[in-house]
Design a protein around this nucleic acid. Sequence first.
DNA 1: ATAAACCCCATCAGCTAACCGGGGTATAAT
DNA 2: ATTATACCCCGGTTAGCTGATGGGGTTTAT
Lengths: 145, 145
Amino acid sequence: MELSCKSEYALLALLELAACHSKGEPLQIREIAARQNIPDRYLEQLLANLRRYGLVRSQRGAKGGYLLAREPWKISLSEIFDCIEGPNPPVAETGCTTETVEKATILEAWQEAQQAAKSVLQNYTLQNLCERRDAKQQLDIMYYI
Amino acid sequence: MELSCKSEYALLALLELAACHSKGEPLQIREIAARQNIPDRYLEQLLANLRRYGLVRSQRGAKGGYLLAREPWKISLSEIFDCIEGPNPPVAETGCTTETVEKATILEAWQEAQQAAKSVLQNYTLQNLCERRDAKQQLDIMYYI
DNA sequence: ATAAACCCCATCAGCTAACCGGGGTATAAT
DNA sequence: ATTATACCCCGGTTAGCTGATGGGGTTTAT
């Protein structure tokens, strides 16, 4: 399974917001886009989505921008993926009885695997990710010397 | 993550082949397609793929068809997904150094989650799947009575 | 020889991801 | 009040993928 560009953009943006979170001032789309090299008009859509799902909040007007809606340690990666990748509720009565026994069996195994992946993502918070990034950055500096 | 139609078809076909495996005679595409309600021309392509990757073997000519290349307990679901979903080697130098520290960090977490899913699928064999299907079928009969 | 079955290649419709653009609206600063 | 800033919403475009179909070959049992 590939990590979609979309999700990567969202994660990168949230990582930036998490870094600014302590100082309480909003960060602008254009600033985030510039720092992480993301097409800004596209990022706008993604952030709008994250806002609708309550992961970030926005401030309009001059000096506006985006902020995390919660502390970075209260946002799991699982939630983020659900927001971005998730708008697929039209499952429409799937799940009740999946036509044939074979299909049901296969689906069960598949979902078990997906649940395993989700569990991992539930245990990662934005905070964790920031810390890992910082650690990586330190390592890079060490190697440079 | 959605289970692709493609993968489901392949799994269904292999499930049929596994059921016939003990009697050693090949099973025809059209027969599999009919039993599992799969477009036969499409299934043909999928089986060809599975053959190239050595999961099944084919017998040409009259009375021909497909057989599992190995015993059902020696084929993991992970392998199957790799064959079907897997033809994505054009990663092209990705993985060496993923541009920015942030991207690398994100990718790491993502891959960790994917690995968790893969582990589940590695522990499932076609045999397991057959058994679970049989168990399910018994249950259905019980309920019917 | 013939028919059954696989083999290979090409094409197509429909969908989604990624992206771009236009015009509207709220807000801070002057 | 006016203006500049920045979010907001809605739509269109393009490339690539998925699921599917069609045509014409080759192998093999009978």
